[in-house]
């Protein structure tokens, strides 16, 4: 019984395989291959994926790990890990980024873009600290410390109260002040100049409105050269 029944099955399998091979050949000719066509590399194991799978999605916090951190704890971690560059209250030392302030300044002549005034999503802050900070030792902080720092920086910006505890549930619910000010589709081209070839303007109207001449912003053109040349 079994043998008899298996024949048509085998035949069917062979036909299916032949059909598959033909389809793969067609797909390859068209530039699309079946998954595993080349067979190079090997499957990534769950453990390997877990080690690198650090991304957290900004708008809904997908990927945030277990753990939590309070504003109070964040104050301590920040003083130790961050304040040297970002200032004790996120004011920024030298040209290092200012993390707090600038609320309502986005329409100003000199807007101040900080976590509080500009960033649209709170989980992005967790993700960025976790993947890139502190600059000298990225990925050295625990999830709890990253939650605490996130809570502290949000509190510096008056976005969460002093008793706030950041975790995977609370962080996605934090509403950033600038959240709705972004458009995520590109409206360009937003200029439509015509390529006029002659008498495109009144020569008298062509005036120099600004010049780099006399400003002291240009690094010395010979800058690095000076130190590279033999004396």
């Amino acid at each position: 019984m079994f043998r008899q029944a298996s024949r048509p099955l085998l035949l069917g399998a062979a036909l299916t395989a032949a059909l598959k091979a033909a389809l793969v050949a067609i797909a390859t000719a068209a530039g699309a291959a079946e998954p595993g066509h080349y067979g190079y590399g090997r499957p990534a194991t769950p453990a390997e994926i877990a080690g690198w799978n650090i991304d957290v999605r900004g708008d809904d916090g997908a990927g945030l790990p277990p753990g939590s951190g309070s504003v109070a704890k964040g104050t301590e971690v920040f003083a130790e890990q961050c304040a040297a560059c970002h200032g004790t209250f996120g004011e920024g030392e030298g040209r290092f980024p200012k993390l707090a302030g600038g609320a309502g300044s986005l329409k100003d002549d000199r807007p101040e873009l900080t976590v509080g005034s500009y960033w649209p999503f709170a989980p992005t802050l967790w993700d960025y600290i976790n993947r890139a900070m502190p600059m000298q030792a990225p990925r050295s902080l625990s999830a709890d410390d990253v939650y605490a720092l996130t809570a502290y920086i949000l509190n510096l910006n008056d976005i969460v109260p002093g008793e706030f505890v950041a975790d995977r549930d609370s962080l996605p619910k934090v509403r950033m002040p600038n959240r709705d000010s972004f458009t995520w589709t590109d409206p360009r081209p937003d200029t439509m100049a015509k390529p006029c070839m002659s008498a495109c303007a009144n020569p008298a109207d062509v005036r120099i409105s600004s010049t780099a001449e006399g400003r002291d912003l240009t690094p010395r053109t010979t800058g690095p050269l000076d130190t590279m040349q033999p004396k």
Binding site: R57, L113, P120, W184
Partner: peptide, 9 residues
């Protein structure tokens, strides 16, 4: 999309 720091701030 992920809305990472490099595409938001």
């Amino acid at each position: 999309p992920w809305y990472s720091r490099e595409e938001t701030s």
